[in-house]
Structures are given as C-alpha cells and as structure tokens.
C-alpha cells in the first residue's frame, strides 16, 4: 500500500499553485502498463497519477526494475499504456496513432539516453540537425544546430563524429539534439549512467543551466542520489507504483 497520495490539484515545486489556465506540461492520469507473459498478466506500472507544470526539474527515482523506463516510454509515446492517460501540453497522447505520435515526439518531447544513441555516421552538428529535418523547423537547421552546440559548450566540435568525442561530449550533443525543436519537455533516462562522476556533474549543471535559461521542463529518471540534489521536485517509484512526490532540494529555485 502506497504511503503517498497523489495531489488532486498539483502544486508547483515551490509550493505555489499554478496560474489560472496554465496547462501542465505533463499530466499522467491513472496510468497502468502490463505485459502478458504466457497466461499471466504482469503489471509493470499501476495507477500512476501526477502532473508537472512548466519549468520543473523533476527526478524520477527508483531501483532497477521499478518501472522508471517504462513510465518514460509511456510519457514520450514510445510505449502504449494499458490503462490511463498521458497528456502532453493538455493533449492526450495515450491513444494516438503512430504518425501523430511522431509529430508529438518531434515538437513536444526531447529525449536523452544513458547510451547517448548518436548516429555514428553523422557529425555533431548533423546529429543535432536530424530532428529539425523531420519536423517543420522554419529557420536554418544548420544555424540552429550550431547555436545549440554553442550553448552546450561544443562550438569547437561541430564537425566531429561521435567516435571522435568523449562520453561527456557525446551526451552534450544528445542534449542539444533533444532541445533542437524547442520542446517544452525533455525526458532523460539515466543521462549520467555512462559517465564518470565529474562528467556526470558537468552534464547535470548543464541541464540545470538550460532549464534556467530556456524554461524547459526536465524529467530525469535515475537511481543516482546526486541527481536528486538538483531536483525541484522528486517522484519516487517502486514496483510500478508512485510511492513519493516531494519538493526537491532546489524547489523554488528560478
């Protein structure tokens, strides 16, 4: 039995109520995800409900196998929930068709992975350009990619391929790619998992800095307690259930 009762009217990380009419960037309602294993139904996520207003820096914490990645998959439209709803900017994405979800992923959610997942044949700049060519970016993809790589401190590495970059640099490129189309929400799955402690810290500083500068909402899945130190809000998940929703150490920070 969970000791946590989800808030019926979500508050901001600093404890203030969202402005009237302000739509949460992400709203998850009674989300469930189960898999059929032979004759048995295995529940991976059960009745998860929370809401995240714009500008939050949220950590999603829990042990391995608790359902963090599955939850992120459902949030980003990569996985289909068995029950419940996921609303991104007020739009229910849980029952969308594949082609509609592709549009949502391009415009509304950016993703950062533990393994960076850059395309090895493309340069850093071209990797950042990739989402800009998939959607309807009005400006010059090349300029935008250059600008973003400058923002993540890689102006001098524009034409380098992933195998010519360090792990930390590759993750910076991945972050720049996630931000390319100016999505209101960026979801990161263990973004520092493959990095040394110092590089991991740099990445977290970068993400925090970007949140401050761009107002982007970040949801970061991790079981690294260091990351939790940056959170404005902390969600805790265990055995597929949301067991905690607390303000983070940086709650209220702008």
């Amino acid at each position: 039995m969970s000791d946590f009762a989800p808030a019926s009217s979500p508050l901001r990380a600093d404890g203030s109520a969202p402005a009237v009419g302000e739509v949460p960037v992400l709203e998850v309602r009674h989300l469930g995800r189960s898999l059929r294993l032979g004759s048995e139904e295995l529940a991976i996520l059960q009745d998860i409900t929370f809401s995240i207003p714009p500008g939050e820096f949220v950590t999603l914490m829990g042990p391995s196998g608790s359902g963090k990645s599955t939850l992120l998959g459902c949030i980003t439209g990569l996985d289909n929930p068995s029950q419940g709803q996921v609303l991104l900017n007020g739009v229910d994405v849980s029952r969308m068709r594949e082609s509609q979800l592709a549009g949502i992923r391009n415009r509304t959610v950016g993703m950062v992975f533990q393994a960076f997942n850059l395309i090895p044949t493309l340069t850093a700049r071209e990797n950042v350009e990739v989402p800009l060519y998939a959607g309807r970016w009005r400006g010059s993809p090349s300029s935008r990619a250059t600008e973003l790589l400058g923002l993540v401190g890689l102006s001098h590495r524009l034409e380098h391929r992933p195998n010519q970059l360090s792990g930390g640099e590759q993750q910076r490129v991945a972050i720049a790619r996630a931000l390319a189309t100016e999505p209101p929400l960026v979801v990161a799955d263990e973004p520092t998992g493959n990095l040394a402690a110092a590089q991991g810290k740099e990445i977290l500083e970068l993400l925090w800095d970007l949140r401050q500068r761009m107002g982007t909402t970040f949801v970061i899945a991790t079981h690294d307690s260091t990351i939790a130190g940056y959170a404005t809000r902390m969600l805790q998940i265990s055995d597929g259930r949301l067991v905690g929703d607390h303000p983070g150490p940086r709650a209220g920070a702008r």
């Binding site: 980003t76 990569l78 594949e98 082609s99 592709a102 549009g103 992923r105 391009n106 415009r107 993703m111 997942n117 850059l118 395309i119 090895p120 990739v130 989402p131 998939a134 959607g135 790619r177 390319a180 189309t181």
Partner: peptide, 16 residues
C-alpha cells in the same frame, strides 16, 4: 536498429 529507433524518437515517421 538503434539508429532507426533514435530517428523515430526524434520524430521521424515511417515514410521518412
């Protein structure tokens, strides 16, 4: 496959 998955996560449709 991973590249393809990445392309899809950044919004590429099947026709792309």
């Amino acid at each position: 496959r991973l590249e393809i998955a990445m392309l899809k996560t950044t919004g590429y449709r099947r026709r792309d």
